[in-house]
Amino acid sequence: MLEIKPERVSTRAVFADALPELALRHNVLVVDTDTGSIKPTPGMDYLNVGIAENAAVGLAAGAEHFGQRALVCTFAAFSVSRAFEFIKLDVAYPRRRVCIVGTHAGASGGWLGPTHHATEDLALMNALPNMRVVVPADALQAVSLLEQCLQYDGPTYLRLGRKASPVFEGLPEPELGVPQQVRPGRDVALVATGPEILALALDVAQGLAGAGYSAQVINAHTVDPESAGAVGRAVDAQCRWLVTLEEAWTSGGMGAQVASAAGARGIRWLPIGVTGFLPPGSHASLLEASGLTPDSVLRQVLTFVSDPK
């Protein structure tokens, strides 16, 4: 059974630590947008273009056109707003081997406010053909999935939080595009993406067990439409209810992809996530305001499964 470790580790921090060696190993041009996340080392092919996300994506796409893999590090809120057209036309359309890394994703920007919250990124990146959208479940998965993104033959978007987040004991090595069942169950399937949300799903599964329901928990670390079919197939055949949990707007996000893939089974679906703009606040307070707490989600799920419709 998956356990939550007592320590918390930032996915952004482990990304910064692992990137120099991986960039050298895989001959990757790293293009930074003055994020403060990357500490270049000798021999690392690194370029900081400042707060110029459009230029960063264009440079990366050009380098890939001439044979070099590239990675762009941005704040998630800016990659999917300022640079979206460049990602669409310069990266996704020609299937460039460019990894877009978005930090401060979801509500993890906290007190920086709605200008820096990125709750629309999953929907926007999922809308792009050819794009793999990746949300590591913890710091350990972040390093493995970063390397897989750097080896993938096409564009990827790697979504990272800002500060320390849960780390899991017993979480299997991830494989791009392959969901992970981390708790078996036969009544309710809880599909979660991201560290805080996977921890939330495990807590809710325990609460459902106490109410007499067997809850399956699935870690969806790759959430694009190409991966949604695999998530849908991972849902236990006996499950009558599907609940998707994400730190993002539910319109067009992970849950919408999974529900679409599982729709042919006639399984009932409850999407739970962020439903509007969020004010400045701590990460924890913003999750609470969004109803993304164990007590709130458990209440929502119990109401859902008790509805005879």
Rank of each mutant, 00 (worst) to 15 (best):
Q181R: 14
L245R: 06
C73I: 12
G273Q: 01
A139Y: 07
S144I: 14
D153A: 15
A192K: 02
V72E: 02
V101E: 10
L198C: 10
V49N: 07
S108G: 08
P280T: 03
V231T: 15
N48T: 08
L245P: 04
Q68E: 12
V72L: 05
S251K: 10
E7D: 15
S37M: 11
D187W: 00
G232F: 03
D121W: 05
T35M: 06
S79Y: 00
L286Y: 00
A123K: 03
V223F: 06
L158A: 03
F75V: 13
D307Y: 11
G210H: 11
G253M: 12
I272E: 08
A164V: 04
L190M: 08
H116F: 10
N130Y: 13
P129Y: 12
E21P: 00
V217A: 05
A70I: 07
V98T: 03
V9H: 02
L302E: 04
A289D: 01
F15V: 10
G106N: 13
F66R: 14
L22Y: 12
M131P: 03
F168C: 06
I87A: 04
Q181A: 02
A52R: 15
N219M: 06
V204L: 07
H26C: 08
D153L: 09
L160Y: 03
L122S: 06
G207I: 01
A61S: 12
H26G: 07
P279H: 01
V135W: 04
Y213A: 13
P94G: 09
R240M: 00
C99K: 06
L150T: 08
P280H: 01
G232M: 05
W249T: 08
